[in-house]
Structure formats: structure tokens, C-alpha cells
């Protein structure tokens, strides 16, 4: 094994990436765990906003619909990096004012909470559009039937709309999840130690830029490919019992 690594000239890279302290492998994995935690939290928060936003856009009053249109347009036209900074400062300001009103001192927003808050609001705008399209693809007869049985609106949403639209929403949601995992890299710029920042620090202190950036790229790629497999399986599950797509209309 060691001869093979020597022959390939990789001994040094393997030592740098080892999980024990002289190596930086543990730092990268910790960064990856942080990235995934934020991505999962932001994705869930975004889904909640998206579901509420989609229902508002479809069934809400005229003012609510216009305000939601402003929200989705602005969020999708302004760079994530700028939004992250604005939301980060607004979030910490609001939190501090609330803390001062309640008689506490300054509070420091934790990196994970801040990441979930800012990326979740960005994700919510995209999720609103994805879920709105998916809900519109549900045959209206199904919703009318549920309403005709006297189901209250929330039960219709939970028992009919959501299960029926999930299959249509899955490809868009898979895309959103991938965007969430990649957007966590932007938090490196505000100094949160997720995978990209850990990589940059490891690379800068060892001067082994290629080793670490390639390793981090491989980790991100692994997450992407595994997510693809998982979402394909979830889409098959969500579409169970539905007629195959592309059949006769």
C-alpha cells in the first residue's frame, strides 16, 4: 500500500488529509458536517416558507399575492451574497433589540442559526415557486372532491394537496436541496467555518492548495451524487399509485 502511494507521489497528500491531528482530515469532515446541518435546516425552513407562500399565492387575497410576488422577485434577482449580509445584519439587530427590550445584554447569533435563517429565507422564495407549480399540477377534481366531502381546508392540504403534489414537486425540490448545499459555501465569506472555509484555512497554512481543494470538491460531489440517488428514490415513492408520466392524457 505505502509503495503504491509512493509510486504515485501521493504520500504527502494522504498524510495531510489523515484524520489524526497533524493531518487536516478531521477539520474537513467537521466543516462538511456543519455545511450539511445548515443545508438541512435551511431546506426545511425554506420548505415551510414555500408551502405557506405557495398557498398564499394561489388562495390568498390580492394584496398578499402582490406582496409575495415582490418577495420572490426581489430574492431571485439579488445575489445570495448580498442577501446573506443584509439578512445577517437585520437578524442580529432585531435579536439584540429584542434582547435589550427583555432586559438581556448583547447576544451573539450562533453561526448555524444565522446560516439557517438567511439561507432559509432565500430558499423560501424558490420553494414558493416550485410548490406553487406542483400544486397547480394537481387535478382540480381531487381537491373539489375533498371539499365536497366537507373536509376543512387544512385537512384538504394535509391529506390531499400535499401527497398529490409531492411527485410533481420532487425534481424541483431536489434542485433546491443541491442549491442549499452549495450556497452554504457562501457563509465562508461571513466567517462561518463550514467546508469551504475549513478547506481554505487548511490549504493556506500548509500551502497544499491542490490537495485540499480537490478533496473538498470530491466531498461536495459525493454529497451531490448521493442526494441524486436519494431524491430519485423519493420521487418514485411520492409517485407511487400515480399513472406514469408521458402516457396518454
Amino acid at each position: 500500500m505505502t509503495e503504491l502511494l509512493d509510486a504515485l507521489g501521493l504520500t504527502q497528500s494522504v498524510a495531510l488529509l489523515s484524520l489524526q491531528p497533524p493531518g487536516w482530515g478531521a477539520n474537513l469532515l467537521r466543516g462538511l458536517a456543519n455545511s450539511l446541518r445548515i443545508a438541512a435546516g435551511a431546506f426545511a425552513f425554506g420548505l415551510a416558507i414555500g408551502l405557506a407562500g405557495a398557498c398564499g399565492k394561489l388562495y390568498g387575497g390580492v394584496i398578499l399575492r402582490d406582496l409575495l410576488a415582490v418577495y420572490t422577485t426581489v430574492i431571485r434577482a439579488v445575489p445570495e451574497l448580498v442577501l446573506i449580509l443584509i439578512l445577517y445584519y437585520v437578524g442580529t439587530d432585531l435579536l439584540n433589540q429584542a434582547a435589550a427590550a427583555l432586559g438581556y445584554g448583547r447576544v451573539e447569533l450562533s453561526g448555524v442559526a444565522a446560516g439557517i435563517w438567511v439561507l432559509g429565507i432565500v430558499q423560501g422564495a424558490y420553494a414558493t415557486e416550485v410548490l406553487r407549480g406542483a400544486i397547480q399540477a394537481v387535478p382540480p377534481g381531487q381537491l373539489e372532491a375533498a371539499r365536497a366531502f366537507g373536509m376543512p381546508p387544512l385537512t384538504v392540504l394535509r391529506r390531499v394537496t400535499v401527497p398529490a403534489m409531492l411527485g410533481h414537486a420532487m425534481p424541483g425540490l431536489a434542485n433546491l436541496w443541491l442549491i442549499a448545499t452549495k450556497d452554504t459555501a457562501l457563509l465562508a465569506i461571513v466567517g462561518f467555518s463550514e467546508l469551504t472555509l475549513e478547506t481554505q484555512q487548511a490549504a493556506a497554512s500548509t500551502r497544499a492548495y491542490f490537495t485540499f481543494f480537490l478533496a473538498a470538491g470530491a466531498l461536495y460531489l459525493l454529497v451531490t451524487l448521493l442526494s441524486g440517488v436519494v431524491f430519485a428514490r423519493m420521487e418514485r415513492w411520492a409517485r407511487r399509485g400515480q399513472p406514469p408520466v408521458g402516457g396518454s392524457a
Binding site: 459555501a185 481554505q200 470538491g217 461536495y220 451531490t224
Partner: peptide, 23 residues
């Protein structure tokens, strides 16, 4: 396409700038 779409752009930028820039 898979590699470009599967990794964050920030990582790609830093890889090119710091990696190639140091090579």
C-alpha cells in the same frame, strides 16, 4: 458538467486562484 454543477462556485474560484496561482 457534473463536476461544475456539483461543487460550489466559490470553491472553484478559490481552487483556480490559489491553486493555479501558487503553481
Amino acid at each position: 458538467c457534473t463536476v461544475i454543477r456539483g461543487t460550489p462556485l466559490l470553491l472553484q474560484i478559490w481552487f483556480l486562484y490559489y491553486g493555479l496561482g501558487s503553481l
